[in-house]
Structures are given as C-alpha cells and as structure tokens.
C-alpha cells in the first residue's frame, strides 16, 4: 500500500511539475517590460542550437544541430551542421539558402508571407513578438519558465504555423527555447545553448 501511495504521489508531483498556469497581469507586465528593455540592448546574438523535430510517424524525435546568428534589425542566419550542412539567411528582404553547396536566393520583398515568417522567426529568437495585431497571445508559466504562446491571426501564416511557444527562464528576458506547432500536428522544438549577446559579428557571417 505504501509503495502504491508513493507512486501516486510521484505521479502527482510530475503532473504538477508539468502543469501550466496562467500568468498574472503583474507578471505579464513585468515580462513584457523586461523583454522590451533587454531587446533594446541587443545588437547581436550568437548561439548554438539543438533542434528536435517531432513527427507523429516516429517514436523518437529527429535531432539537428547548428548555430544561429542574429544582427539587429532582422538579419538572421540559421546554419545547420548536422545532419547536413545547410544554411538559411534572412537579410535585406531576401532569403539566401545554401543547401549543401547549392545556393538559391528568394526575394522575400515580393512575398509578404515570407516577410511575415522571417519576422516571426527573428522575433522568436529575440522575444520581440508582443504584437497583438499579428497574434493572439496567451501567457502561461510552468515551474521553470514563462511561456508566451502566439497564434498567428493571418490566414497565410496559419497555413504553415499553428502556434509558436516562446520559453523565457525565470529571471531571464531572452528566449531559451522555441516550440513551433504545425497544422499537421507535428512540431519543432529548438533549444538555444552557449548564447552570447552583443559579440562582434563580421558581415562575412551573413554572406552566402
């Protein structure tokens, strides 16, 4: 009996641990204020990332790794080193793709959707996304993080991204984790590690 009770308590604890609660108005105001203050100071971000792609068809998530570079305003490079070398650069309203040496350029200026998506991705990195006109926003917290849940309002964006969850560790106003949920039910989780703020990033970093 004692053993069973211990198991029940353990399960209860785990549930409580994983449970999300709504943030209070005071917490929301403080988070917004600290994220906006921190954002104003950010000139560059350099960070490693690990990406987990959850697919309904697979029991284990697919893991990718790489580095992310951000330079204000909205210049962003995602560079994968595993499973293959692949980079995507959002710069000057263009998207530059280097797919294992094969280079392509997309003019995002002529594509409002790409512009919105690249803005969303850049915002996801910095946390600068409290835009009520673009997203329905929910604020929750678990035992370790504040979580901002964004649901795009634009139909064109909704076709690709159902929701974006940004995780801010308590006491830190910069995003540590992003979860992108797709209409298919699959999702991608990105964890940032070894983050360096405002280090010098040469222009060559953002050259294709």
């Amino acid at each position: 009996m004692k053993f069973r009770l211990s198991v029940v308590f353990l399960l209860m604890n785990l549930l409580v641990f994983a449970q999300e609660k709504a943030m209070t108005q005071d917490e929301i105001s403080k988070l917004k204020s600290s994220v906006n203050t921190e954002n104003a100071k950010i000139q560059t971000i350099k960070t490693d990332f690990i990406q987990y792609k959850h697919m309904d068809v697979l029991e284990e998530d697919l893991k990718s790794e790489g580095q992310m570079y951000f330079k204000t305003r909205n210049t962003l490079k995602w560079s994968y080193s595993k499973p293959v070398s692949y980079s995507i650069i959002f710069k000057d309203n263009k998207v530059y793709i280097n797919d294992q040496g094969k280079k392509q350029t997309i003019n995002a200026n002529q594509n409002k959707l790409f512009e919105k998506l690249s803005g969303l991705i850049a915002g996801s990195v910095t946390g600068n996304v409290f835009n009520e006109s673009e997203f329905k926003i929910a604020y929750v917290k678990n035992n370790t993080h504040y979580i901002v849940k964004l649901s795009p309002k634009t139909d064109a964006v909704k076709k690709y991204i159902r929701e974006v969850h940004l995780f801010f560790p308590f006491g830190d106003a910069v995003v540590s984790e992003v979860k992108m949920l797709e209409p298919s039910g699959d999702y991608t989780k990105i964890l940032f590690k070894n983050r360096q703020l405002n280090v010098k990033l040469e222009d060559a970093v953002f050259a294709q």
Binding site: V57, V84, Y86, Q104, S184
Partner: peptide, 28 residues
C-alpha cells in the same frame, strides 16, 4: 533547383506504406 529534407518511411501493414517528408528547417 534543389530542395533537401528528411524522408521517413514506415510500413503500416502488408503492402501499405507511409511516407513523411519534412524540410530541414523543420516543417512537415
């Protein structure tokens, strides 16, 4: 043009298969 991604195959039953393709950036 070239588009890379991940291709997952799973046999679901006899002579029936499931294929899922996602981009490297993550989207299915």
């Amino acid at each position: 043009n070239q588009q890379s991604g991940i291709f997952v195959h799973k046999k679901t039953e006899d002579n029936r298969h499931r294929v899922v393709i996602s981009s490297l950036f993550g989207g299915t």
